[in-house]
């Protein structure tokens, strides 16, 4: 642990240095432009100060994003439409619902593929094909089609999340459920175990490490799905809506704070699965 304490802050510090430097470089033309029109000459320190404090910078400086994050999370009431916590909550709810749906669908398909020869031969190519279609192309279709049959709100967005998150679960669980070797399966046969016993006592526990690896990817994919799903709905609410609204009005600071929020959300969710994984595998004696 002690060794990892040094490199992490070093890398983070380096990233901040690069970030601040880049915001000077990228925002300088606008600062010069304004100075020229006002007929003043900018010193270097004035230039730096200006590039780090513009209203609509090309690249906002880290502290601007931090201030925006603070103002839109701590300073605003959660119920406010301008609260990032509110928007995160909207995105989180469809992420989680989509993640649960995707996990259930993924495990279901994997069980089918492992136990049913017809599904084994036919399903996997479709699963892979489904992921080659850009989600941005299919998301509006899902919203429109579901809206036409009277389903709107949370579910269509969750389904887009599911569409992205079931894939890693299928792939991981097929591999996991097939991880018992011939000997272990023969052994079950010598005990005259039923198919159900073979599944619950051997295949499912064997697949646990694979499942958790898949769930982490699925959770991240689910969040991406939820954000994409918010775009075609007219950007009403959610982190996706903040991103879209920010880009309409050139609110780069708002875009960046939404991005950081999304990243933090993803990191938090994946870390949560990591904790569940550690506890589960430890209780199973496998960690």
């Amino acid at each position: 642990m002690r060794k990892s304490l040094f490199p992490v802050p070093t890398v983070v510090a380096a990233l901040f240095v690069i970030w601040y430097a880049m915001s000077v470089v990228l925002n300088a033309p606008w600062a010069y432009d304004r100075a020229k029109r006002a007929g003043v000459e900018l010193s270097f320190s004035e230039l730096v100060a200006d590039t780090w404090a513009q209203d609509k910078p090309k690249l906002p400086a880290p502290h601007q994003v931090a201030v925006e994050l603070w103002n839109t999370t701590v300073e605003k009431k959660i119920t406010s439409k301008r609260s990032l916590v509110f928007h995160s909550g909207v995105t989180l709810s469809s992420t989680l619902l989509g993640f649960v749906l995707g996990t259930v669908l993924g495990i279901g398909l994997a069980v089918g593929i492992v136990y049913n020869r017809v599904m084994d031969m036919s399903v996997m190519p479709w699963v892979i094909a489904s992921q080659t279609i850009p989600i941005l192309a299919i998301a509006p279709m899902i919203i429109v089609v579901l809206n036409a049959v009277g389903i709107s709100g949370l579910l269509p967005k969750a389904i887009i999340s599911m569409y992205l998150s079931f894939f890693p679960v299928v792939v991981g669980m097929v591999k996991g459920l097939r991880s018992p070797d011939m000997m272990q399966l023969d052994q079950m046969r010598t005990w005259n175990a039923t198919g159900g016993q073979q599944f619950w006592k051997l295949r499912l526990p064997s697949s646990m490490p694979y499942l958790f690896a898949s769930l982490k990817i699925a959770m991240a994919a689910s969040l991406v799905g939820a954000i994409v799903g918010e775009l075609p709905t007219g950007a009403v609410a959610g982190l996706g809506a903040r991103l879209l609204a920010g880009s309409y009005y050139g609110q780069t600071i708002q875009i960046w704070s939404a991005l950081i929020m999304a990243a933090a959300l993803a990191a938090g969710l994946v870390a949560l699965i990591g904790v569940v994984q550690r506890v589960t595998l430890k209780r199973m004696g496998m960690a």
Binding site: Q187, L202, M286
Partner: peptide, 11 residues
């Protein structure tokens, strides 16, 4: 039946 490897379930 005893196999060549113990094949105990690690969990």
């Amino acid at each position: 039946y005893v196999f060549q490897h113990a094949g105990l379930y690690p969990w």
